[in-house]
């Protein structure tokens, strides 16, 4: 969570709020923030650290493990209408990539802004080539886009 806290300003710049959730109590969240995270992030964690004791929230999101008694690493991107646009669930030993979360948020925001007239192909980053869905694009994506444009020649 320290990585997200460290880059919170970038989330804010995109108008994105962050909520972190684990089964720990709010009291443990405080001690973790005060004794460890604040040493990695100036000013400490800037967003709500929610407590999901018992795993009720994790259960409805499908990320709670009754066997381990913890919420798995689930990350849900929720749009302004409250609809889940993206989700990723990892087991505990592998951490997330904040760059990828920010990239996906920017992509979803572009699609929303253009009302779906612009969609983002694989590996899109801000300023990158977008596609305009329509009859003319069918079987013609190759004319507009090539994976090597994004991923380079391997």
């Amino acid at each position: 969570m320290s990585a997200v806290a460290d880059r919170y300003a970038e989330f804010q710049a995109l108008g994105v709020e962050v909520i972190s959730v684990s089964v720990d109590s709010q009291f443990v969240h405080k001690v973790w923030n005060d004794t460890e995270l604040s040493k990695m992030v100036d000013g400490g964690v800037p967003f709500h650290m929610a407590s999901d004791g018992g795993g009720a929230i994790g259960t409805v999101y499908g990320v709670y493990s009754p066997a381990q008694g913890v919420d798995f690493r689930g990350r849900f991107l929720i749009d302004p209408d409250g609809i889940i646009q993206g989700m990723e669930i990892l087991t505990p030993p592998v951490g997330r990539n904040v760059d990828e979360t920010l990239r996906q948020l920017q992509a979803f925001q572009l699609v929303r802004k253009t009302g779906g007239k612009e969609v983002t192909p694989s590996g899109w980053t801000p300023g990158g080539k977008v596609l305009n869905p329509g009859p003319d694009l069918v079987a013609n994506v190759w004319k507009f886009w090539n994976p090597k444009d994004v991923y380079g020649k391997k």
Binding site: V23, G58, Q68, P92
Partner: peptide, 24 residues
């Protein structure tokens, strides 16, 4: 210590991040 309610952020994008535990 406060209370957080997801729907209080309606109208904004939200990144909801579950994780296994503090101090992991």
């Amino acid at each position: 210590f406060t209370t957080v309610k997801l729907s209080d952020f309606a109208g904004k994008w939200v990144s909801l991040c579950f994780y296994p535990g503090d101090f992991t």
